[in-house]
Simulated assay, not measured.
Amino acid sequence: MSTNAISTAATSTNERDPAMTMTPEQATQFAEVFDRMVRGVEQVLLGKSHVIRLSFTALLSEGHLLLEDVPGTGKTSLARAIAQSVRGTSNRVQFTPDLLPSDITGVSIYDQRSGSFDFHRGPVFANIVLADEINRASPKTQAALLEVMEEGQVTADGVTHPVAAPFMVIATQNPIEQAGTYRLPEAQLDRFIMKSSIGYPDHASTIRILEGSDKRAHDVVVPPVLSAATVVELAALARTVHVDATINDYVARLVDATRNATEVRLGASVRAALALIRTAKTLAAANGRHYVIPDDVKELAEPVLAHRLLLDPEAEFDGVTPSSVIAQILIETPPPGDRQLV
């Protein structure tokens, strides 16, 4: 199915009525384009289709992605491949302790000829921005991303400069090296719609990687599948996926459970609940459905909610992790039955 068909479908849906939901035919077309995007990135990241699907789910949910994993697992390669799959602009920023906020957002420079200050845009003005090793920058520099990640704009000298659409920040960080790093504050973690890790490849994928050792990761170029405008249209189409009232109730109960868990000092916010619904809609469409089911919510609960939880220090000392808390909550919180969804 061509991307033109998707564009036509998205436009027709918006023209009919903003309250109209996605049709089964549109869901099928959405899934075909989504799978094509995933297959392209799989050329670079072998045997990791699940994390690739999560990454594109974040993109089409109009959110930002945080990749946390040990060195050498392909975090940067994944982010670069996602950027290449979209026919738009992309920039990579290597975060270091001496990086300044203006190095990211831009700076105003005085023009002697015109007698005025001209704003020179920073690398954040792109469709996809790779923030490599984000936890190596100072808190002041990390905070420079807050406004642009949440509002899609940069304010400099009282003037607002909007970024392009779509806009996505893919940030990476190394969890095992603490020297010279600055922990991301909860306010910024909450801006990431999803946090995921890649992990080591399985044996078969490792063999395939070794067989292609004559090629470097950056030598493999992923052909662009979609234009930036089509990504915006797909995201708009994903928002029209039907969500039953029982699904909203299920998400609300899950979020409430994170706030009442004894191991948790700070539970999931309202923004987290909205993020879970948004990503569940996109995942449903990616699976060829025009409606959300409880399994969509279950699959996304850990990557969407876990990084937003702040655990009690005693629970952390006992080996409790945010992921284990979410897993236990999913077990204890009954999903809506099939008959309720009809």
Rank of each mutant, 00 (worst) to 15 (best):
G180T: 01
D157M: 15
A165V: 14
M168H: 08
T160F: 06
E177L: 10
H161M: 11
Q178P: 04
T160D: 05
M168S: 13
N135I: 07
A164S: 15
V129D: 00
K140F: 13
T172V: 03
V159N: 07
P166M: 10
F167H: 01
G158W: 08
L130S: 06
G152Y: 02
V124K: 00
V148L: 01
K140I: 05
V169G: 04
E150T: 13
G152F: 04
N135T: 14
P175V: 03
V163L: 06
I170D: 00
N135R: 04
A131H: 00
T155F: 14
Q173P: 08
V124Q: 04
P175Q: 03
A131S: 08
Q142I: 09
G152H: 05
V154P: 09
V169Y: 00
V148R: 00
T141M: 13
P162D: 08
Q173A: 01
E151A: 11
V154S: 05
A171D: 01
L145C: 11
Q153Y: 12
E151M: 07
Q173N: 10
A165S: 15
P175C: 06
Q173M: 06
I128H: 03
T172A: 11
P123Y: 08
G158M: 06
A156P: 02
E150F: 09
Q153S: 15
A171G: 03
K140L: 11
G158F: 07
N127P: 11
N135W: 01
Q153F: 12
A131M: 01
A165K: 15
N135L: 12
E151R: 04
T155W: 12
A131R: 02
D157A: 13
F125S: 01
A143K: 14
I134K: 03
E133M: 02
V159D: 12
L146Y: 10
G180N: 05
